[in-house]
Amino acid sequence: MTRWLRRAAGTACWPALGAAVAAHVALAVLAVAEYASLGWLLHTGYDLAAVTLVAATAVVGLAASSWVAARTAAGSRALRRLAVYHRRALPPAVRSAAVALGLAGRVEAVAAGEPFAVTCGLARPRILVSDGLAEALSPAELGAVLAHERSHLTHRDPARLLAARLLAAYGCYLPAASWMADRVALNRELAADRAALAQAGRGELASALLKLAALPACPAVAAARPAGDPAGSLEARVAQLEHGRPARPRLAMSRALATAGGLAVLAAAGLCCAGLAAAIQGGML
């Protein structure tokens, strides 16, 4: 029952968040119109605070979302350039694993000794692997990694992640926003691991994780990486491999309360904005 409820909340969550963002932007437009028709000093302090809050949060949110969109566009261009300039023939082991998983034509190899596999691209996602991947992993481990990436590919996870990050950026002043985006990313990783388990053994997936997560010996590279497991994502994936149930990081109560408080203040300010607009429309102001 709780599981059903959680799933229902998960599906309802996205349209609800989208509607909330649309309403916020609309109210911010109203707020600017109110400034224009009532003069920049509205007649009471409460109205002034409410209208300014709605307009300012919308401006901050739109700026942060545009920044994320611009970075994503730059990243996609950089990846495309990589795939063009540094493309390599698919190593035979990768090719046969890709064909076995029905991924022919969707996997590309780039020159890099460091083993990695990523899925990228919004409209037509592709899997990008380094040619070092085939050297680092056994054929069975390669199968596990490609099955994991295939799940990202078929579910268009790069697009989902972008949507989550755009939304989180729009609400970046709310403490739960980044937690929500991390949660979406983690849920996709966990789903991809489950898909990999349907194709490959648990041992293969675990050893691929072990080989690819461990840092290379070179300290200069180590310095460029985050220390530990900041989002707790590897921890959750290992827990899922161990007993089928992931240990997802919880949202701290203080951050949840702060977010709820922030949303309540925003809702009150939004109501005030809408009220003012109605009053202006009715000729009362």
């Binding site: 970075r71 994503t72 730059a74 990243g75 996609s76 990846l79 990695f116 596999a117 990523v118 899925t119 990228c120 691209g121 919004l122 990694v145 994991h148 990436e149 990202h152 996870d157 790069p158 697009a159 992640l161 972008l162 990050r165 990313a185 996709r188 990783e189 991809a192 691929a208 994780l209 072990l210 690819l212 997560a213 461990a214 840092l215 290379p216 180590a222 990486r225 985050p226 220390a227 530990g228 497991d229 994502s233 590897l234 994936r237």
Partner: peptide
């Protein structure tokens, strides 16, 4: 972090 899903992030494995 931009619109790509990596198999696993390289981390200082504890």
């Amino acid at each position: 972090d931009a619109a790509l899903a990596r198999f696993v992030e390289q981390v200082e494995l504890d």
